[in-house]
Simulated scan of single mutants.
Amino acid sequence: MATLNLILDKRRARKDGTYPLVFRIRIGKKFSDIRTEFKLRPQEFDSKTSSIVNDLYSNELLLDLKKHYIQRLRSYMISNVGREDVKEARKYLVNKLPDEVTMHEFWLEQIEELRTAGRQGGARVYQTALSVLSQETNLNRPFSQFSYKDLIQLEKKLYQRGLSNNGISVYMRSFRAICNKAINFDLVDYSWYPFRKYKFKKDKTTPRVLTQEELRRFFRLNLSSDHPFYQSWLLGKLIFMLRGINITDLLLLSSDNLQNGRIIYKRAKTGKVYSIKMTDEVKCTFEKFEANKTLVGLITEKDLKDRQKLVNILIQRRKVINTHLKKIGKLIEANEAITTYVFRYSYANIAKQLGYSKDLIGEALGHNVGSKITGIYLEQFDLEVVDEMNQRIIKSIS
């Protein structure tokens, strides 16, 4: 008889008090382990339910992996009756011929690779796309058995679910990326590629922006430090004054990002490096927070150490902040619902109204500029030019 269970391997204690989380295969009295990338403390793992405590996303991923391994283990046992070997079983579970690898399991492997590399946001995007698409088409088959006709049928089913062109595009782009990786891993030949003929459709959207007058009302709002929206209000101001900084990047800023009177950081989403002058207004706003390992103190040292849970924590923080900002929007009678991203669009809109060029605005926001010649020109922009524009934009709504 063979079994497969998810356990903490307490034979291998780490210096930080964690143990590796493994899938243990047992055949008779012998066992072998398949490692995962999780390292947990005993109180973080529920042995009764074989699940990580308070981590729905990771548990879903592990459950999918367990189902895959169990299916492979059954196949191995049927094919090797009377000559079962636990080490050979492990090899069978983790290794496959190209025609045996299903789209679903390869997709899961790519999610795990992203998570291991610390790219939790990308892993979540892939996981969401996999969850949605697997409901509408059979991904438990090799790539070679999925055709262009299947792709069009999948798109049709997504439309029937009521998804927009833009929503479908998000999921299909993730699917395309997985297909490209499969080709690069020689799981299928490029001649198979179903996306060669596929056309992505996109609806034009009008960015939500606040007017100068609405931003003035936002900045001049008088909230006391004990008001429930106070910190979210300050964060909104910082997002605007820091040229539309992403809320995740803002929450993770630390003293290490302060250099010679500037805030220098790498955007988590794109990897682009930003250098923004620390103006008096920005400095004053930061001083109203109780800093810890981060400048605004809303992410704890414990949060930073657990990269697996940090993404969920950041998502929750963003939801709370956006809820507060929307309520502040009602207080100032804004026509648009305020979210963290509205400040980025509003910054660009006001810069345009003040007469600044698209190139300079794009440089301030970190956009890639179309032509190589323009790009080279922009690389030579003196920081003072962007700083001057930023200061003028801030003063226009103060």
Rank of each mutant, 00 (worst) to 15 (best):
G121R: 13
Q120K: 12
F146E: 03
L133S: 04
E155V: 01
K157N: 08
R119Q: 14
K156Q: 14
G162Y: 11
S191Y: 10
S134K: 14
S131L: 11
F185K: 08
G162H: 10
P194N: 06
N140T: 11
E155T: 01
K156P: 02
V170H: 03
S164A: 13
D189Y: 03
S144K: 05
K157S: 06
C179N: 06
A129Q: 04
S191Q: 13
A182R: 06
T128K: 07
A177K: 10
I168S: 01
R141K: 15
R161H: 12
N184Y: 07
Q120L: 12
R176L: 04
R161V: 08
Q145T: 09
A129E: 09
G118K: 13
R141T: 11
L139F: 07
S134A: 11
Q153M: 12
G121L: 10
V188D: 00
S147T: 15
M172Q: 03
Q135R: 15
I178R: 02
R115G: 08
K156I: 13
A117H: 12
S169Y: 03
P142T: 07
N180S: 13
N165H: 13
F146W: 06
S147K: 12
P194K: 03
I178F: 03
V188F: 01
L133D: 02
A177I: 06
K156E: 15
Y171C: 04
L158D: 01
G162R: 11
S134I: 05
S144C: 09
L139Q: 08
T116I: 14
S174A: 13
F146T: 02
D189T: 00
M172L: 15
I152V: 13
L114I: 09
A177Y: 02
L154E: 02
T128C: 08
P142A: 14
I152F: 01
E112K: 15
Q135G: 09
G121P: 01
L151A: 04
Q153L: 12
F143N: 00
L154D: 00
R115Q: 13
D186M: 10
P142H: 06
P194D: 03
A177H: 05
I183C: 02
S174L: 03
Q153E: 14
R161N: 12
E112I: 14
Q120M: 13
N140A: 10
R176C: 01
E155W: 02
K156A: 14
S164G: 13
R173C: 04
Q120I: 06
E136L: 11
L130Y: 03
F175V: 01
G162S: 08
L158W: 02
R124H: 14
I178K: 00
S134V: 04
K149E: 09
I152S: 08
Q127K: 13
T116G: 12
T116K: 15
E112F: 09
V132P: 04
K149W: 05
P142W: 03
G162F: 11
R176A: 00
K149P: 00
G121T: 13
L163E: 04
S169M: 11
Q153K: 10
V125E: 10
Q145Y: 07
R115F: 10
R161L: 11
S191F: 05
S191G: 05
Y193H: 07
D150Y: 05
V170Y: 01
E155F: 00
N184A: 15
A123L: 09
R119A: 12
V125S: 11
V125R: 12
S169Q: 10
R119C: 12
L133G: 06
I152G: 02
P142L: 07
Q120E: 15
A117W: 09
Q160R: 15
